[in-house]
Amino acid sequence: MTAATTAPTSIAAQAVHATKVYGSGDTAVRALDDLSAEFGTGQYSAIMGPSGSGKSTLMHCMAGLDTLTDGQVFIGGTDLSELSEKELTQLRREKVGFVFQAFNLVPTLDAQENITLPMDLGGSAYDDGWVDTVIDTVGLRDRLEHRPAELSGGQQQRVAVARAMASRPEIIFADEPTGNLDSKTGHEILDFMRSAVDDFGQTIVMVTHDPMAASYSDRVVFLADGRIVDEMLEPTAERVLDKMKQLGE
């Protein structure tokens, strides 16, 4: 794991004084509270924290799915708050990859179509060689014609990872990607994501509450009450677990 020790050379995504308030008055909840964070290019970051700590909100705002109440978010050099709805859609299509916990795939499209979906939506020609590489990496060559309903949970997640990688996005956001899988399949998915970072220089930000999953990352950012409370480089499952206990989960 050489990449883990290397300091990031540039910043893939950045949150600056990010604040997100839900509701107003007495019932207002500060999901993000003046939070600033940077995620380096080619780095595999994990965001951890107890429920309600704001980790999902942070990810949604960074990915252009949600907007901040105050502050800024950057993907590459782009300030998301300045983008229109159309530009945000285009950004998600071209510069961001997603892996969700479940319901990752469109049921009416087969595996191949799901993988190339973002690029098909863009209508742009894509790099067949790269798509082939990704498909081979996740080992789906013989499943391409199958629809999601004909795939196992692990296979579905592999398709999701392949889709996220296929468009060579600047950054992949993964929201509990192994949350619905048994541990063996989970490890497989995490291995794929690790190799995407190691072999192809992919940037990944993953939200998780599983210390085991976090241990695959280069750096773990711990959140509580909408702020960053700690950071850990070269995490191991034990150290992360200890930290989490410390944070009171």
């Binding site: 990915a63 285009q90 299509r93 969700f100 319901f103 973002p118 939506l121 863009g122 889709r163």
Partner: peptide, 16 residues
């Protein structure tokens, strides 16, 4: 709903 959300997330525009 969920499927449409996914499509929008991975970059489907409103027009599409």
């Amino acid at each position: 709903t969920r499927e449409l959300g996914l499509l929008r997330a991975v970059g489907m525009s409103r027009a599409q």
